[in-house]
Design a protein around this nucleic acid. Structure first.
Lengths: 148, 148
DNA sequence: AGTGAAACGACCGTAGA
DNA sequence: TCTACGGTCGTTTCACT
């Protein structure tokens, strides 16, 4: 699907506040309310955009985040699935490069992170090697790719 | 801030659809509409939660995603800031581990990715070494950490 | 443009520090 | 008593046909 400038403007508006009324969006982008509503429906139905609640783990007592780089022996997908099943894991991607799988984890403390990596991640069958990249500072996080 | 079960239920509901009416949430969690509205306001005002539009780059012709692991000489923050300023970069984090900075990038094609890494990222002053981890499969992505 | 639904604000009640 | 939270109701605004 291709986005025109008005689609992008609508997304940008909903990026600021996902509950912005259609009428307010309409005024901001120069379309009728109905046109905006149809476009939003089209964007969400097609899977291009989704309007969801996003939480901030640091505000919830999860002070320790890290990316775990993993080297695997054998098939990758079972390992990725096992990682995704862990409650502390919020992001899993299979990659080609110096790691086979990347997993982002959210922990309450160093002890929690240690237990997670040492006991549970390294216990997954097929996990050969892990590299823990502890987060020092989250510099940027964008939810609306391809829009700005 | 501490979340009780009702906060979590509200977040879970808005995680499914960020525009769910307060009355519907109220019914689902067993509170009045007003109470739900106040809780949502508290959650968003405090920064615990945000309701936003999220786009799917693969649906928008950005077929090539990658995590770029970067080793830096000298200060880290200027490099992280320069990375964040690139339009293709949607996520930047400073880490302690085998990379100094991680940047997730969204590209239209291999050629685009090559140009980005080769010309622009490696041209940033302080970038010493890059490792491109091309995404093969995004296995999981969660927006509501600490809720499930 | 009109109508039913949703959101909002002002006010009150209650429980616990 | 003060604060935090929930509920009721009347009004305005919004969503959808």
């Amino acid at each position: 699907m291709t986005l025109d400038e008005q689609d992008k403007a609508i997304i940008a508006e909903l990026q600021r506040d996902g509950r912005t009324p259609y009428a307010a969006i309409a005024e901001a982008v120069g379309l009728s309310e109905t046109a905006v509503r149809k476009r939003v429906m089209r964007l969400t139905d097609s899977g291009v955009m989704q309007i969801v609640a996003v939480t901030d783990p640091t505000q919830l007592g999860f002070a320790r985040q890290a990316m775990i780089g993993i080297r695997v022996s054998g098939p990758l997908e079972p390992v990725a699935q096992a990682l995704a099943a862990l409650p502390e894991v919020d992001y899993v991607v299979i990659t080609a490069g110096s790691f086979d799988v990347l997993a982002e984890v959210v922990c309450e403390s160093d002890a929690h992170l240690l237990a997670l990596v040492s006991d549970r991640i390294r216990g997954i069958s097929g996990v050969r090697e892990t590299d823990t990249l502890m987060y020092l500072k989250l510099q940027q996080q964008t939810y609306a790719w391809g829009v700005r």
